Amino acid sequence: MSDTSGRQALVIGASRGLGLVLAEELTRRSWRVIATARQNGGELRAKADASNGRLRVESLEMTSDDQLAALRERLDGTELDLLFVNAAIDRGNLPITEVSTETFAEVMITNALSPLRTVEALRDLVTPGGTVAVMSSRQGSVSLNTRPGFELYKASKAALNQLMRSYSTRYAEDGHTKLLIHPGHNQTPLGGPGAPLSPAESMPAVVDVLEAQAGAKGLQFLDLYGEVVPW
């Protein structure tokens, strides 16, 4: 394991589920962590209070341009070794013909557009050699889409992956490691109680990947074990 005692991470979307456990795991490994929540933080706030200053909570509704700009202003001068954006919603297992325009827009904005806007707004805080990572899903893999179901969610994650690909092309020379991470099927409000993994199992593996890939060039789409996920 690398020496992370002086490193700092920003985890976007950490009020519950994967983001919460990710922030906690980074803190456990002696990273200093800034983590965002949409409201008062709840469990995240309690963990921050017990962290001896290693975990700090900031407020952010990621779909709000004004809140994103305000967060960027509050973080001015901060140096990040890791920027990790975690966001996803699901509005049910409907064929695309039954999805309303409003629902389509909501899911695409939350799962694809807002994460990339967040990365764009905060990327200049990431140090040379730092990492920009986004929580994706193998559900966004076009080549692995061989079973029916969850068409809108799959489309939103595929859009996220494509936007991140465009981002990595535009900033190919910025020196940042760029990662799309598939965390596995987890027992979260999104993944459901019957999922085979818990966040307590998957997030340590994800942090292993983040630490192992630090300094790698280009964009990679990896799972929680560091294996390549096909596009």
Rank of each mutant, 00 (worst) to 15 (best):
S2D: 12
D3G: 00
T4G: 06
R7H: 08
Q8F: 05
Q8S: 07
Q8P: 00
V11G: 04
I12G: 01
A14Q: 02
L18I: 14
L20H: 04
E24I: 07
L26D: 01
R29A: 03
W31S: 03
R32H: 09
V33I: 02
I34A: 02
I34V: 14
T36K: 04
R38N: 07
N40M: 09
G41E: 02
L44G: 01
R45P: 00
A46K: 15
K47E: 12
K47L: 14
A48Y: 07
A48I: 07
A50C: 09
N52C: 13
R54E: 03
R56T: 15
T63K: 07
S64L: 11
Q67M: 11
A69V: 10
L71A: 12
R72I: 02
E73Y: 01
T78K: 10
F84L: 13
V85C: 13
A87I: 13
A87M: 10
A88H: 02
D90G: 14
D90M: 13
G92L: 14
G92A: 15
N93A: 11
L94H: 09
P95G: 07
P95E: 06
I96A: 07
T97W: 06
T101S: 12
E102Y: 05
A105R: 15
V107H: 02
N111S: 00
A112N: 03
A112Y: 00
L113K: 09
P115G: 10
P115D: 10
T118P: 05
E120T: 11
A121C: 08
L122F: 09
L122P: 00
L122I: 06
L125R: 05
L125F: 08
V126S: 07
T127I: 05
T127Q: 06
P128N: 05
Q139C: 08
G140M: 07
S143K: 09
L144D: 15
G149M: 10
E151P: 04
L152Y: 02
Y153L: 09
A155L: 14
A155D: 02
S156Y: 01
Q162I: 10
Q162F: 08
Y167Q: 11
R170Q: 15
D174A: 12
G175P: 09
G175F: 11
T177H: 03
I181F: 00
H182I: 02
H185N: 14
T188P: 00
L197S: 07
E201M: 12
E201D: 09
P204A: 12
A205H: 13
A205V: 11
D208K: 14
A212K: 14
Q213E: 15
A214Y: 08
G215H: 10
A216F: 09
K217W: 06
Q220T: 15
L222N: 03
D223W: 06
Y225C: 08
Y225D: 15
V229P: 01
P230Q: 04
P230K: 06
